[in-house]
Design a protein around this nucleic acid. Structure first.
Length: 427
RNA sequence: GGACAGAUGGCAGAGCGGUUGAAUGCACCGGUCUUGAAAACCGGCAUGGGUUUAUAGCCCAUCCAGGGUUCGAAUCCCUGUCUGUCCGCCA
């Protein structure tokens, strides 16, 4: 959501920002509606003032035992005029909200221009992109997992349809170990507060982080009007919804390990094999609520927190800045971390760290106030994967695949979570 | 799921349909007093919007949300949401 005053003062800046998103100029339509609405409001308020004054008079006259019928009739007449204006005010307000809530966030100046993921800009790489045991034609994770007998897509399809998986035995445990390790890292090492949040949320909450109204088709809605979270960013960010928090309590850092549910409506045919793109997957999420002055530094910090997980797992990766054409709806700037996947011989996205500025905060009405200060302002919100658990499982399986026996070696940092297992092999 | 009770400013808590945007206490901020602090005393202290050069003034809205009754609603009526208590069911 946007500051109408800012658009009013600088319509061409707003249009330029939307142009970077590939959208037509919006300010003219917005400002026309805004002007109409303010005119209606001014007229309405004048009538309200008149009504209030006359009603008070009636009170006085009646208290003195007089007859106020004439004034009462006059107020009735005012009321009739007000109804039409009230309707107009409401309609114009809704129209305005419809437009504003469907427009994407304004991107930061340093986001590179570009059309799609091919124009993203690499900022660093870490590690040697190759399987650590020298496998030349490393199989993909589903081949490794199916040969081990611990990754079953057919049974999952029987249970739930496509884009689901049934993990079992030590691969199931490995997934859990990865999640535990990530959660411990984000809490103990990086200072995020662990949360175990609701996974079904209200429409307002989905609106607050920007999933609604525009991306309804990607979401699972329940029969009683709730929504399955597509990421715990939604819940963690909305913790401060409708709140005025003390500036001294910022930054607030939250993390959660939760399932994520997505329809993947727009990606039919993409990544159909394996568990890269599923309707349900686990993710450890990081969310930071910051003072506006601190969000840039927090963004860099969050990126390091995510990268640190891959470094601890010794999985090669590269980090990119998303270009304008690839940056998500709610973000002002996004870093993607792509893990090396030997089976695909490619880097694949495993984390996305975004700063949203005040975009979500405005939608949520989440503000802060300095102690003793009168003025409130919107907080900044950031979110990042720390990391996607399913994709990390893939990365571990392919990077730690041992061609000698088709097994998967357990990374050192995960060993404490694996109950003494050093390597997963076929039973 | 059933029955009852409730929802008021940062918190607690008053409030007869008519100068109530809202008593009072606490918290907070400023001041007096004090070497300093505490206490005491004095003053201030909601949010959003319109108008405006203005974070000045004026005006409007807001006492959970949305409708309604009325010349006038925190106060009356309806619906919804949430909270509490009891009953039922249950991991």
């Amino acid at each position: 959501m946007f500051d109408l005053k800012a658009i009013r003062e600088n319509p061409s800046d707003f249009d330029a920002a939307m142009a970077r998103r590939g959208l037509e100029a919006q300010s003219h339509d917005i400002l026309t509606l805004d002007e109409k609405r303010r005119a209606v409001q001014t007229a309405l308020q004048t009538l309200q003032q008149e009504r209030n004054e006359k009603s008070k008079e009636i009170g006085k006259v009646k208290a003195a035992g007089g007859d106020a019928q004439e004034t009462m009739d006059a107020v009735s007449a005012i009321k009739d005029k007000m109804t039409a204006l009230e309707d107009q005010d409401r309609d114009l307000g809704e129209e305005l909200k419809t437009i504003l809530s469907s427009l994407p966030n304004i991107m930061k100046d340093d986001v590179p221009d570009g059309a799609d993921e091919n124009d993203n800009v690499e900022i660093r790489t870490w590690g040697e992109p190759k399987n650590r045991f020298g496998a030349n034609d490393c199989p993909e994770h589903y081949d490794i997992g199916e040969k081990l007998g611990m990754m079953d897509f057919e049974t999952a399809a029987k249970l739930s349809g496509s884009r689901f998986v049934l993990l079992s035995s030590q691969i199931a445990r490995l997934e859990r170990a990865i999640a535990q390790f990530m959660l411990d890292t984000q809490t103990e090492k990086n200072g995020y507060t662990e949360c175990s949040p609701p996974l079904l949320v209200s429409t307002d909450v989905m609106y607050g982080t920007g999933q609604l109204p525009k991306f309804q088709d990607d979401q699972f809605e329940t029969t009683d009007g709730r929504w399955l979270v597509p990421t715990s960013e939604v819940v963690l960010t909305n913790i401060v919804r409708e709140e005025i928090v003390e500036a001294e309590s910022l930054p607030r850092r939250y993390t959660a390990f939760t399932p994520c549910f997505r329809k993947e409506a727009g990606s039919a045919g993409r990544d159909t094999r394996g568990m890269l793109r599923q309707h349900q997957f686990y993710k450890v999420e990081m969310v930071s609520i910051t003072h506006p002055d601190e969000s840039d530094a927090e963004h860099e910090r969050m990126l390091k927190c995510a990268e640190g997980v891959l470094e601890a797992l010794e999985i090669p990766y590269r980090t990119v800045v998303l270009c304008t054409g690839d940056t998500g709806f709610g973000a002002r700037k996004t870093f993607d971390i792509e893990a090396w996947m030997p089976g695909q011989n490619a880097y694949r996205e495993i984390s996305s760290c975004s700063t949203c500025g005040d975009f979500q905060a405005r939608r949520m009405n989440a503000r802060f106030k300095a102690k003793g200060e009168k003025k409130t302002d919107f907080v900044h919100t950031l979110n990042g994967s720390g990391l996607a658990v399913g994709r990390t499982l893939i990365a571990v399986m392919e990077n730690y695949y041992d061609p000698a026996d088709g097994g998967v070696v357990i990374p050192d940092v995960l060993k404490p979570y694996m109950g003494g297992i050093e390597k997963i092999v076929k039973a």
